[in-house]
Design a protein around this nucleic acid. Sequence first.
DNA 1: TGACATATGCAATTAAATTGCATATACTAA
DNA 2: TTAGTATATGCAATTTAATTGCATATGTCA
Lengths: 143, 143
Amino acid sequence: MITQIKLHDCKSELREADLRATPTRLGVLQILETATTPLDVTTILSELRKKGIDPDKATIFRMMHSFLQKGLVREINLSESKNRYEYRGKGFHHHLICQVCGVIEDMDDCNIDIWEKELRKKKGFIVKRHSLEFFGLCKNCQN
Amino acid sequence: MITQIKLHDCKSELREADLRATPTRLGVLQILETATTPLDVTTILSELRKKGIDPDKATIFRMMHSFLQKGLVREINLSESKNRYEYRGKGFHHHLICQVCGVIEDMDDCNIDIWEKELRKKKGFIVKRHSLEFFGLCKNCQN
DNA sequence: TGACATATGCAATTAAATTGCATATACTAA
DNA sequence: TTAGTATATGCAATTTAATTGCATATGTCA
């Protein structure tokens, strides 16, 4: 059963991160792992309800903090009034956000590393992380 | 008098943007033009009070909308819970944000244009704007 | 100077995120 | 399997950024 393996994976993933494997956390992890775009807390909540889990939003906000701290998720900021979260296991990538329909595409290749070395040399600044997002028009919205 | 010339510049800048040159707007423009980092609305308000101007925050939020629409400022998002605004006349650049002391440095050179052409070819995505920010440790905070 | 579109003040409201505290539950060790 | 304990959750209140409606004030142009 794929689902069982999946659940087991999530469980050990949480345990390895020193986090208790509660049903809500397992549900959130599963949702984030299968999501095709970064999700905000409200969306995570409504996805959870579809699974029959209905926690308080404070729980999810606190969960995102601990997930973030343990490195399970990344916080994504797309110039909205809210944060989004993305499963970190997917690997690092940037986003293409359509300003018309709002669709979010991934962009895998990123060679900013070169810049980071330059910044260290030129400015003495040590880069720990960076964010790069492109806003514009997706294929369908160009008319 | 440099100040007079400056004020005159701000005034015509606003008029050219089809915006009325009110004292509050002139003050905000002057503050943004002399600022060394992008400012949030709360900071703009307290800077205004130092000048003896004390408007409502709603006014500044609305002002940022019109300034943004007219292209006088850029909206900067540094993964905070609030927006910052930067005078657009300074030209486009990215930021280095120290995760320890919070200092924000500018980074002038940006050759993302090359990427934009690639994105158009590979993904059919037309880039209208992008945001690139580096988070890490400034020279003083590396110990 | 007067008319009028625009800008502002004020107050109420929305939405994201945080916090304190009591209760519930997952994990560990016996 | 169970009891003890640290951790997670629920609930309610609160904070902060941002928005909105509406009445009033003000900049601009004729």
